[in-house]
Design a binder for these strands. Structure first.
Lengths: 368, 368
DNA sequence: CTGAAAGCGCTTACAG
DNA sequence: CTGAAAGCGCTTACAG
């Protein structure tokens, strides 16, 4: 019966204080310390840590008190060793744009804050011979809890296959659904392209051109097809001769811009599939002495820093990259938990930001 | 004597093959597997892994053969648990510029490649109440092998103190030496400022202005003082009224530029302490209808993407941020090893890149 | 130069 | 609802 009598809160607090003053060398408390202080087995402590329901509420309360008091925090390495997985989330990316990388990173970190998970960054090169092995060994060796994969490497089915093989949870960020719902964040770039097309059509442009990204990038195809759809709603066509091939770099935008400007008749508006290329187009117009937006409207995609640094400030389509990272992280942490409730929120929608690089075509532009 | 006879290479290879075909469920090999295959204790395997000299060379050779053959890689979590530290490097930063963050990150990753170490990113907010506790708990809980700290949080002595308390190796990146040599990468921003000053003086500018960063940032003070030194070499003074206070953001550069342009007489050249502010200055000049570089020269600092996206392309001082990250990572991994040889290479020097935003002052500028 | 034992701080069946 | 024992894959004194 003495055994059944619950010790008072004060008793525990006193014990904790004694423990702290004994702990001269400031050793971090372990599960054993908590168990000793609480007078239970460490298995029970483990249950509290892991939020198991199989614990007497009052026992749980006592233990929680002790945990808080002595500042116990389970060692992630020890848990990891026992569970055969770490408390690390990986981010696998090959996108060269620093702003994109940082935005998604920030979003993931937003989602990880307070969870005890940490983010390990892992750039990769899809062209490398050892790309798949590298990724596999990274994930396997670190026993990652999960990874988020960004475009364009997210479009690589071989990588997804590897991740499944090593039994690693993953979330792929891509412009369209390429995998099961819980493994995707879909950014719907097509809708953004459509908005760009409609924007230019509504302004009255008829002779429009586009700088595309590599066809091997899904986002590039989506943005282009969306753009054509948007124009199509106004019965405007993107003539084949008015499409220049870029590769998402500033330099390619510069070259593509020069090329399109030289067309006869020249386009009155150019949509570039990302801001970097749009900045190149704008610069090529400046070099050619063409006024933006009077003689030429330019629209980009991303709304990164560059969009507001150039002049005139760029009309562009913004994709919420930080939010996307946040959703990806949340989704990763939800794996195994009840995903049934209220369904996944795994879609985002881009939105057009109208600045000064686009306007109605001028009278003299012979806009037919 | 049979015991002394060394088994042949082939014997080991055969054993490995047998092991692999037995390993139906594709379990990753552990130290025990290697020990069994080699016919030695796991302690000896441990010695090989850890490159201990106390191993018979031929034993080592046999073991290495087996390790390579079955693809054994020591589990970092298990090692970590035993050694009480992880194989993770942290990057603690509060710099809001994505390009800087990514560059340093890349550099660190360059230095980590092939070492088995991984990079955990950890942004922080020095204004937060819990900033120091957060950092401590991050480092302690993950038992980080080491951290690299970037400006401006690298200038915080309290953080350095915490890192020492928890006995975590660290390298601070800063514009001047704030700590022991092996704990610093010094970027010498003052030399960069000096180059900017000399550049403008050599072009013939006499009435120069500057947009500074926050005085609480060491880099801002260094860049400014360096700039004044550079001008001083040509007996040119930076008049107090010609210094505008910024905070390293584009917006602050925009405001500062407008302010300086309005001065009477206006400056013929402006040095902004970073590219973001320089881009703001350039944009404010455009808005005011002032031609760059004919009526106004502008020089920035960083040479980030923005520098070449704006028009005219920006003359700026480049600090090799990726290289800086690389040096920091190398230095971290060298801790405990012989640092005696050939001394540390822990200094970098910025260099001026002359583009189109700076030139000689025009005749009509009344440049006295 | 090599090994047997104990330990790092957790968790997982299993039994009660 | 709770616990004793074994184990995750390594390393560290210690002994030889």
């Amino acid at each position: 019966m003495a055994k059944k009598k619950r010790k008072s809160k004060k008793t525990f607090l006193d014990a904790c204080r004694r423990w702290k003053s004994d702990n001269s060398n400031n050793r971090k408390p372990t599960i054993n310390d908590v168990a000793a202080l609480a007078g239970v087995s460490k298995k029970t402590i483990s249950r509290v840590i892991n939020a198991s329901p199989l614990v007497n509420p009052s026992t749980r309360e006592d233990i929680q008190l002790i945990i808080d008091e002595i500042g116990y925090r389970p060692d992630p390495q020890a848990r990891g060793l026992a569970l055969q997985r770490s408390y690390l989330i990986g981010m696998i990316y090959d996108n060269p744009n620093p702003q994109y990388v940082v935005n998604v990173q920030q979003g993931i970190l937003d989602g990880l804050r307070g969870t005890g998970f940490e983010l390990v960054v892992h750039p990769c090169d899809r062209k490398s011979e050892t790309f798949l092995e590298d990724a596999r060994s990274f994930v396997e060796l670190q026993k990652l809890y999960g990874v988020v994969v960004t475009p364009s490497v997210s479009e690589d089915e071989r990588l997804a296959e590897v991740l499944r093989e090593v039994d690693c949870q993953y979330v792929r960020i891509a412009s369209v659904a390429l995998d099961r719902d819980e493994r995707m964040i879909v950014t719907n770039d097509r809708a953004g392209g459509r908005d760009a097309g409609k924007h230019l059509a509504e302004l009255g442009h008829k002779r429009v051109a586009m700088v595309t990204g590599r066809r091997s990038f899904r986002s590039a195809r989506e943005r282009r097809e969306g753009f054509e759809e948007g124009l199509g709603e106004f019965d405007i066509e993107l003539a084949p001769g008015y499409v220049a091939q870029g590769n998402y770099t500033f330099e390619s935008g510069l070259a593509a811009g020069a090329e399109l400007i030289d067309l006869n008749p020249p386009p009155t508006a150019i949509f570039a599939a990302n801001d970097e290329m749009a900045a190149g187009v704008v610069q090529s117009a400046l070099i050619a002495g063409i006024n933006i937006p009077d003689e030429l409207s330019v629209v980009g995609f991303d709304n990164f820093q560059t969009a507001t640094r150039i002049w005139p400030r760029l009309t562009t389509v913004e994709s919420p990259s930080r939010q996307i990272g946040l959703l990806a992280a949340r989704q990763l942490l939800q794996f195994g938990h009840d995903t049934s409730d209220k369904g996944l929120h795994n879609h985002t929608t881009p939105k057009l930001i109208w600045r000064k690089s686009s306007g109605a075509p001028s009278e003299g532009s012979n806009n037919t």
